[in-house]
C-alpha cells in the first residue's frame, strides 16, 4: 500500500458514516452559539476535525480530489471578508463597528440575537477552513525532501 492511500477498509467505512455526524454536530454548535456554550470557534474546530477525519482515513490524494482545495481557500477568505462587511454595516446603520443592528428577537429562540448568529456562522466557516488547510499543508510537507510540498 502506498504511503498516502489512507487506512484500512474498516476505518474508511466507519469514517463514511461518522463524518456526517460530526458535521451535523459542528453545525449544531455553531448555530446555537448564542444560546448554549460553544459557538463559531468551537463548532468550526469540530467541522475541521470532521474533514481531518477524512484526510486521515482516505489519505491526502483522495481528500484533495473530494474537496476542492482552491474553493475552500476562497471560502475561507470570503467568510472573514463578509465578517468585516457586516461589521462595517454596523457603522453605517448605528454608528459603531460591529454594532448589533438587526432586531434582537426573543430570548432563547434559535433565530434571535441579531448579528451574533451571523458572526458565529462566518467564524465557524473561517476556523474550519483555516485549521483544515493548515493541517493539510503540514500533512503534504515532505521533510525528507527538504520541506517541499
Amino acid at each position: 500500500m502506498k504511503n498516502n492511500q489512507g487506512m484500512s477498509i474498516i476505518v474508511k467505512t466507519v469514517t463514511r458514516v461518522s463524518v456526517w455526524l460530526m458535521v451535523l454536530y459542528a453545525w449544531y454548535i455553531i448555530l446555537h452559539g448564542h444560546l448554549t456554550p460553544g459557538g463559531g470557534f468551537g463548532g468550526g474546530v469540530i467541522f475541521a476535525i470532521a474533514m481531518l477525519n477524512v484526510l486521515l482515513a482516505y489519505g491526502s490524494e483522495f481528500t484533495e480530489k473530494w474537496l476542492k482545495i482552491r474553493l475552500l481557500h476562497d471560502i475561507e477568505a470570503a467568510s472573514i471578508l463578509l465578517f468585516l462587511i457586516v461589521g462595517i454595516l454596523g457603522i453605517s446603520v448605528l454608528g459603531g463597528f460591529l454594532t448589533n443592528f438587526i432586531l434582537k428577537g426573543k430570548l432563547y429562540e434559535l433565530i434571535s440575537a441579531g448579528t451574533i448568529p451571523i458572526f458565529n456562522i462566518l467564524i465557524g466557516i473561517k476556523v474550519a477552513m483555516s485549521l483544515f488547510l493548515a493541517v493539510l499543508i503540514l500533512a503534504k510537507t515532505n521533510i525528507e525532501n527538504g520541506g517541499e510540498v
Binding site: 476562497d74 477568505a77 471578508l81 468585516l84 463597528f97
Partner: peptide, 19 residues
C-alpha cells in the same frame, strides 16, 4: 469617526488580497 478604520482598512486589504 475615522478611528476604527485604522484597523478595518489593513484587515480588509489583507483578506481581499488573499481572495
Amino acid at each position: 469617526m475615522i478611528l476604527p478604520y485604522f484597523i478595518i482598512i489593513p484587515l480588509l486589504a489583507a483578506f481581499i488580497i488573499t481572495l
